[in-house]
Design a protein around this nucleic acid. Structure first.
Length: 280
DNA sequence: CGCCAGTCCTGACAGC
DNA sequence: TGCTGTCAGGACTGGC
């Protein structure tokens, strides 16, 4: 399941090969995947050929393929999406929903069996306005003070709140669990009970968890592979996610699991106490 | 506005 | 062996 580190790994590679290359052709585009923006799939297929890639960017979990005419193709990989560059001689996998013809007999292919992914084309793309997302967790604008201000009146569990992309962009189920473990915060703690001190720990923990995973080229738990089709290595370094019943790496007590916000949540009851309500 | 339940989707797997 | 049911979850929608 691609979250920020996985999308960043894909972005980094694509950004080494795509800039200054034109889209030669749109060989395939499944209209059902176009779920963003106002440009239809037919119009996208008509507009893309000839456009030259300026850069491959990322905003939260969205990949941003920017063209020199200021337009951009946005791709979200959802749960099972893969974006790979392959020789056109290789057969298409099943569930291939987008194929862009590139130079040198290469193709950029989006494969997404569950079709939770999404595509959109924006004629004028503004990274701060087009997608309604919170700050990048690795940017300077993501601070403890920002978190406190946004969490102050929220009663939902901190786990749910951190999954909200308008609060902070790029975290998914795995890295929220890992970050809360690193910060020593129980996932059911209401947002309003997060003190400045715990918010500082949380910001540091989120950054650490993401940086480590990016260095490991992402977590391959089920579907994820990078743009070269290679698995990431970060699954070897997860402290709680997927470790139900196994000993906590800090205290040895078994990792617990429960469902929050319809997401399986892993945590250590001993190392992650509920935060106290500051209003009391 | 906040919060929650429902929706989409298919591969993998358990159980019969 | 082959069917059926269940589970996984990111982001959006609608109801209250």
């Amino acid at each position: 399941m691609p979250e920020l580190p996985e999308v960043e790994t894909i972005r980094t590679y694509l950004n080494t090969i795509l800039p200054s290359h034109p889209v030669v052709s749109v060989k395939h585009l499944d209209a059902r995947m176009v779920k963003m923006g106002t440009v239809s799939s037919e119009s996208i297929a008509h507009r893309l050929p000839g456009l030259v890639v300026q850069s491959m960017g990322r905003r939260g979990k969205y990949l941003v393929m920017r063209f020199f005419d200021k337009s951009a193709l946005i791709i979200h990989l959802g749960m099972s999406g893969r974006l790979v560059v392959e020789p056109e001689a290789n057969p298409w996998r099943s569930h291939t929903h987008l194929v862009l013809g590139l130079r040198e007999d290469k193709e950029l292919r989006l494969v997404d069996p569950r079709r939770f992914g999404r595509i959109g084309y924006f004629v004028e793309f503004d990274k701060d306005r087009t997608l309604r997302l919170g700050p990048e967790p690795l940017s300077r604008s993501f601070t403890a003070q920002y978190l406190i201000d946004r969490l102050r009146r929220r009663k939902s569990p901190i786990k749910s709140l951190l999954l909200d992309q308008s609060l902070v962009a790029g975290l998914g189920n795995i890295y929220v669990d890992e970050a809360l473990f690193g910060a020593g915060i129980h996932p059911l703690s209401p947002g309003s009970t997060v003190s400045f001190r715990s918010a500082s720990r949380l910001v540091r923990s989120i950054r650490r968890v993401l940086r480590v995973s990016i260095a490991n080229r992402g977590t391959s738990f089920s579907d994820y592979v990078d743009a070269l089709g290679h698995q990431g290595q970060n699954q070897e370094y997860l402290a709680v996610y997927g470790r139900w019943g196994q000993p906590c790496l800090k205290c040895g007590s078994p990792i617990h699991s429960l469902v929050i916000h319809a997401r399986t949540t892993h945590f250590c009851q001993h190392c992650q106490p509920m935060l106290e309500d500051l209003e009391g």
